[in-house]
Amino acid sequence: MSARDAVMLALVALLAALPPVLQLLGEPFLTVIVTRALIFAIAALSLDLLLGYGALVSFGHAAFLGIGAYTALILSGRGVTGLELQLPAALAAAGLFALVTGAISLRTRGVHFIMITLAFGQMAYYFASSLSAFGGDDGQALRARSTLFGADVLAGNSGFYYLVLALLALVWLFLRALTRSRFGRVLSGTRENEARMQAIGFSPFPFRLIAYVVAGMIAAMAGVLLANHASFVAPSYMGWGRSGEMIAMVVLGGMGTLTGPVLGAIAFVLAEETLARFTTHWRLFFGAAIVLIVLFTRGGLLGALLRGRK
């Protein structure tokens, strides 16, 4: 077991013990905030597959979050509340969108790719804004929270929390296995040296496209959870600011490590919540923190943590 696996294991153990502790401390509301952090951790994990392993800087990742959220909204409006139906539908929708936009975006590299994914993300945003049946610009409240095989698992705060935590652990395990598989090694190979991978007979395009689709689908799962968390869905879920925040979570946590982005997302959401309590102008300090951290540190949170241990 590597050091990052140990960090993740300790983190999950800590998170599993959190709700009863918060209950004892008389702060059960904090569970709701941590749930939100864990949902973003799932989204950040999916983005790490692109940023960290594929060196694909996608600036439109929030679109997939939005696709998941809108799937939950639309289905629950029609009386379909079961996660067993909502999740596959969200994954299918996001997978399709990723397949089409990925096939176009991946024709380009570098800055072009950043800007094109950004533009596709905005396209999804404007599309959602024009859905007048679902609240248009203002968004719409979720008719009912999702259920799992008819059971109201998401109704209670701690039930929801443990479901999200379990999904986070599953996604982490899945991506850990995926990045260590032949597929993951080829993907990392194209990140390191595209020409050499081609020379030994791998075309990078299908590997990148599959990574793009898988990452989009996982983000859509986070979107379904996010819709349930706020009981509300709006186009702002897919604004480009959200995509930028997710990149910050991955990079500040330590990209290409899976565990790092989880730490990054949790730290990011908690810092946002804390700063927002003290000042309405928290974005000023937040922006300054991002600038200073990226300019003057390397390796992200996880790197700092592991260095400190040695």
Binding site: I114, A248, V251, H281, R283, L284, G287, A288, A289, V291
Partner: peptide, 20 residues
């Protein structure tokens, strides 16, 4: 490019909030 994206994103947040 990734670092550039992040730093200028942070800068954008700062300018926007400064204006507010």
């Amino acid at each position: 490019h990734l670092d550039q994206v992040l730093v200028t994103f942070g800068l954008m947040l700062m300018i926007g909030e400064g204006v507010r």
